[in-house]
Write a protein that binds this DNA or RNA. Structure first.
Length: 272
DNA sequence: ACTGGATCCTGATCGC
DNA sequence: TGCGATCAGGATCCAG
């Protein structure tokens, strides 16, 4: 679930329910996430603090208070939802934050690849220290990508998923963007031309913007039990479409693995 | 210095 | 129906 558009949608979804309200309690039910949750620190720093705002950096959700920032990463399977405190706790609800007296913010993550961190006001978390540029930033352009690309010789798909280069592009959108830009996922990045980079940047921006617009579909009601999968799946052109006809040319879509990740491409539209 | 592979973990799905 | 194998939207760590 957690691609950049969904993280963005999560931020927008929870913010109206929690910003301006005060944190009353923190319940940590499982500390064994990506990194061990610092329960005491969270309680000390967050309880009685009014929430000042919610922002996103890469795929990290940042909940700001005067003493610092609560930083949450959804990993592969995490969700954040706002419910009424009386709603029963679900399996894998690892963190509960009681906000005001009628809201409960809950972090659920079956696979526990997610993270819950705290960042002091003058601190920079190591996890966020070396993040690359935001894909929707103006500074993310063809020139930038080309300049980074010629230093590497890995597959372009792996390259655009490297968050030190550009953040927020996960496996699905990497597949989709490369299809849209008509670039073969196995093309090595030192073979990328200016034209490739221009098209790829445009494709990444286009796909992410479209997905953010659609992002509400699964997460439209954060108060309900979780929406079913497939928020953007109706619009996917290539991901998980092995054997189906390419939208552009009707050739059969092929699958392969690049760096252990499922990769889909049209052998006619995306040539090496 | 870069790159690919293994790894953390649970749950869904598929083939036998 | 049950069982094992495989795979999943992420990111880090380690060996070569």
């Amino acid at each position: 679930m957690p691609e950049l558009p969904e993280v963005e949608t999560t931020c927008r979804g929870i913010a109206p329910h929690i910003v301006g309200h005060t944190i009353a309690a923190i319940n940590v039910r499982e500390t064994r996430l990506r990194w061990k949750v610092a329960t005491k620190l969270l309680q000390t720093k967050l309880i009685k603090q009014p929430i000042l705002g919610v922002t996103r950096r890469a795929k990290y959700i940042q909940i700001h208070v005067s003493t610092g920032t609560l930083v949450i990463h959804l990993g592969m399977s995490g969700t954040l939802r706002v419910t009424h405190p009386k709603e029963p706790i679900k399996k894998h609800d690892h963190l509960e934050i009681l906000i005001g007296n009628s809201n409960s913010l809950r972090f659920n993550d079956p696979r526990r690849f997610g993270a819950v961190l705290f960042c002091g006001p003058t601190q920079t978390l190591s996890q966020l220290a070396h993040l690359g540029i935001e894909p929707l930033d103006k500074a993310f352009n063809g020139d930038y990508l080309l300049q980074k690309a010629h230093k590497h010789r890995k597959a372009v798909k792996t390259f655009i998923m490297d968050q030190r280069i550009v953040v927020g592009v996960g496996n699905i959108y990497a597949n989709e963007a490369l299809f849209l830009a008509k670039i073969h996922p196995q093309l090595t990045c030192n073979a990328l031309t200016q034209d490739h980079c221009n098209k790829l940047v445009a494709a990444i921006k286009k796909i992410l913007k479209a997905a953010i617009k659609q992002g509400g579909t699964t997460l439209k009601d954060f108060r309900q039990s979780d929406g079913k999968p497939g928020y953007f799946s109706q619009n996917l052109a290539i991901y998980n479409k092995e054997g189906l006809a390419c939208r552009q040319c009707q050739h059969a879509i092929k699958a392969l693995r690049i760096s252990q990740r499922s990769t889909y491409f049209c052998p006619n539209c995306q040539v090496l």
